[in-house]
Amino acid sequence: MAELGKDAKGNRIQKRKGGFKTKKEAETALAEVNTSINKGTYIEPSKQLFKDYLAEWFAGKAYGIGKQTATSYDMYIRVHIIPFMGDVQLSKLNSTHIQNFITHLNDKGLASSTVKRIYTVVNTSLVAAARMKVISENPAAHIVTKPRVQRKEVVVWDESEVQVFLDRTKATTRHHIAFHLALATGMRQGEVLGLRWSDVDFEKSLVQIRQTVTHDGKEIKTGAKTASSLRSIAIDQATIKELKRHRAKQAEEKLASGGSYTDLGLITCTALGNITTPRVLSTAFDNAIKKSGVPRIRFHDLRHTHASMLLKLNINSKVVQERLGHSSIQMTLDLYSHLCPNMQSDAANILGEALFKNTM
Rank of each mutant, 00 (worst) to 15 (best):
K116L: 08
A171D: 13
N287Y: 08
T305E: 02
P341M: 10
D216E: 10
L105V: 04
L324Q: 00
L193R: 01
L339P: 02
Q163Y: 11
Q330T: 14
A348E: 11
K17R: 15
Y73S: 02
G217P: 00
H180C: 11
K92L: 11
M1C: 11
T28N: 15
G265R: 07
T185K: 01
T22I: 08
G10I: 06
G40F: 11
E191R: 04
T214L: 08
S36P: 04
K146E: 03
S91N: 09
A140Y: 00
T185D: 02
T222G: 14
M331R: 08
I81W: 00
L266H: 01
N287S: 14
R174N: 08
K218C: 09
S46K: 05
L255Y: 09
E27I: 13
T276K: 04
V155R: 13
D74W: 03
N274Q: 15
I233H: 02
V207F: 02
R16V: 12
L351Q: 06
N274H: 13
V155P: 04
E159R: 09
M1P: 09
A288T: 07
A256W: 05
T169D: 03
I240W: 00
G190H: 00
K17Q: 12
R131T: 13
A284Y: 05
M85D: 06
R196A: 06
K6I: 10
Q48F: 04
N100C: 08
V122N: 00
V192N: 01
